[in-house]
């Protein structure tokens, strides 16, 4: 019974991916056929030939994601150290959750006017700055878990042995935190990579990313290209899942550490 349930659940978890692959390859898939009558590679050929500008969109989304991830992780690592040592850690954690509570749409509409005045609306940099608000908060929460007694004692030991502040960061803390920094880079990359609301509002139709393109194909009824975009969106996290499960399981750990009562 348990085994059968596990198999059914596994099937349900794989089914959406299979469906997306079939949709991205389908030439004709009319009602009531359970499977497409004919398959083609046109969508994927168009993608690699950049016929619809999709290749450019993918590169732009990748660049934005990498930029946001590097900035959020670098700033978040330094901030998380101060957070972990602060007497009012609980209150600061509440502040870090504020952007997530008000939602990207509310933050997007409320910041658009300021971004327009600063000539940041409709620009890549403006969208990345808005995404950084969320990515930075996430990075601080995730990386605050690093500053355990062991990290602190190693930091103090290096300092007492004569290492300068820069040396402590470069040769002690960063190597020690490398696995978690990798997870943080990846998770904050996904915040930008998956974002739709902020690109829509702050980008004001001028910044085309993969999520915006997916929505455009979907609303224009071109499900096959929408499915192709969806598979591209899923590619980095699924690749990461194949390589290192920890890159995705960090989501669970972050939630637990941010709300750890111990």
């Amino acid at each position: 019974m348990r085994r059968a349930l596990a198999w059914i659940l596994s099937g349900m978890l794989v089914l959406p991916l299979v469906l997306l692959v079939l949709l991205s390859l389908a030439r004709h898939w009319t009602w009531p056929a359970l499977l497409p009558a004919d398959l083609q590679l046109r969508q994927w050929r168009d993608l690699f030939a950049d016929a619809n500008g999709l290749g450019t969109v993918v590169l732009r989304s990748l660049g934005m994601g990498i930029g946001v991830a590097v900035a959020a992780t670098a700033l978040g690592f330094a901030s998380s150290r101060s957070l972990a040592r602060h007497a009012r850690q609980g209150r600061l954690l509440a502040l870090l959750h504020l952007p997530f509570a008000v939602s990207p749409v509310v933050l997007g509409v409320s910041l658009l006017y300021a971004f327009l005045r600063l000539h940041l609306a409709g620009h890549l940099l403006g969208v990345m700055l808005a995404q950084l608000v969320f990515a930075y908060a996430y990075a601080v929460i995730l990386l605050s878990g690093f500053w355990n007694p062991r990290a602190r004692s190693l930091e103090e030991l290096a300092s007492s042995l004569g290492a300068g502040r820069r040396q402590v960061w470069l040769h002690v803390l960063m190597p020690l935190a490398r696995p978690l920094l990798g997870v943080c880079l990846f998770q904050t990359f996904l915040i930008s990579w998956f974002d739709y609301a902020l690109v829509l509002l702050i980008g004001s139709g001028q910044v085309a990313t993969l999520t915006i393109t997916l929505y455009q194909y979907f609303s224009s009824g071109d499900i096959r290209l929408a499915a192709t975009c969806a598979l591209l969106l899923l590619a980095p996290p699924l690749l990461a899942l194949g390589l290192n499960q920890q890159l995705l399981s960090a989501t669970i750990v972050t939630h637990l550490e941010a709300h750890d009562d111990d």
Partner: peptide, 18 residues
């Protein structure tokens, strides 16, 4: 199942809606 349970964590809401 151990690995597959992580798959939905790789799915953004836009794709889930699609």
């Amino acid at each position: 199942l151990r690995g597959l349970l992580f798959v939905p964590l790789a799915v953004p809401p836009l794709v889930a809606a699609l």
